[in-house]
């Protein structure tokens, strides 16, 4: 089973790598053709038409196909490993990186399907690839669980919601980066600023409740395992900071009407906090120090 798992992992790594190549290739091709990637490039969404003579081959369809394969193989890999170890992907950094990559690819595909634009995917997929390559360098052999981690249900849920939240926030990051490049709508082959802004907002609308669950399930587990729901453990604290940043984004937007650049910067900061939280166990020790 572990053998199968590493087999699928390799297949997923290959697919994701190819997917990233295709996305980058497509971006280059679009630049070259100065074509319109999506209708909605200019300021008024309804008035734009794809540039004549250029058939954007399916808004990164090949890239998306490879991403679908990546998700498929990664799912098989996670399931295979879960069957072999009897628990969810939460016992070491390898497992968590794979789970995170899964979340990013799934979110990428959902947003690409929903918005029919591959532009943000071209930023988000390299993030997924980075997590996979990082996982490849890590010790992957499953280790037996120490007593505190023998709480399979809660921890699997905890990591599953983290997977979704972080994956979706990667999209928020991608759209924020593109928004900053596209603020004035000057790049014809990118989606309009308004669409990018909306993608960022939607990523938070989806991700924030999940992020809340990450915190609460973690607290619930801590209460069961140690008898205190919150102990200002470094990873807990930085998760809280991440959560506050996204909470701040929502409030700034809804109450103050923050749009565009300012909220894009918040999204980038938020994702930086996500990465910091994820790498956190390397910077400090604490309850989450399972490296």
């Amino acid at each position: 089973m572990v053998k199968m798992e590493s087999f699928f992992f390799m297949a997923a790594l290959l697919s994701t790598g190819l997917s990233v190549l295709f996305y980058l290739w497509q971006v280059a091709a679009l630049r070259w053709h100065r074509a319109v990637l999506v209708a909605g490039a200019a300021s008024d969404a309804a008035s734009t038409v794809p540039a004549a003579g250029y058939r954007p081959w399916g808004s990164g369809r090949f890239a998306a196909m490879m991403a679908v394969n990546g998700l498929l193989f990664l799912s098989l890999s996670i399931i295979g490993r879960g069957v072999a170890t009897g628990h969810g992907p939460f016992s070491n950094m390898y497992e968590f990186s794979v789970a995170l990559a899964w979340g990013v690819i799934a979110a990428t595909l959902y947003f690409q399907w929903h918005y029919r634009t591959a532009a943000v995917s071209a930023v988000a997929m390299p993030v997924a690839l980075a997590f996979l390559v990082y996982a490849y360098t890590l010790p992957s052999r499953p280790l037996p669980l120490v007593p505190a981690l023998q709480q399979s249900l809660l921890l699997t849920l905890h990591v599953a919601v983290a997977m979704i939240a972080y994956g979706v926030f990667a999209i928020g990051f991608g759209s924020a980066v593109l928004y900053l490049a596209q603020r004035r709508g000057s790049i014809p082959w990118l989606p309009s600023p308004a669409v990018l802004d909306d993608m960022g907002y939607r990523s938070v609308i989806i991700g924030f409740p999940f992020m809340t669950l990450v915190l609460l399930l973690g607290a619930l587990w801590a209460d069961v395992a140690w008898g205190r729901y919150w102990s200002w453990d470094p990873k807990e604290t930085s998760t809280l900071v991440t959560w506050l940043l996204y909470g701040g984004y929502v409030h700034a937007r809804v109450l103050r009407g923050w749009r565009g650049s300012r909220s894009a910067v918040l999204l980038i900061l938020g994702f930086a906090a996500v990465v910091f939280t994820y790498m956190g166990n390397y910077f400090f020790s604490g309850l989450h120090a399972y490296k």
Binding site: T237, L240, L244, H251, L255, R256, F284
Partner: peptide, 24 residues
């Protein structure tokens, strides 16, 4: 004021960072 709230949240984040990075 939303601005005050944001400042308060930033202060809390800053203090949390101090509490995370500095020995407690």
């Amino acid at each position: 004021s939303v601005r005050v709230t944001v400042v308060l949240i930033l202060v809390l984040i800053g203090l949390s960072l101090v509490g995370t990075l500095l020995i407690q």
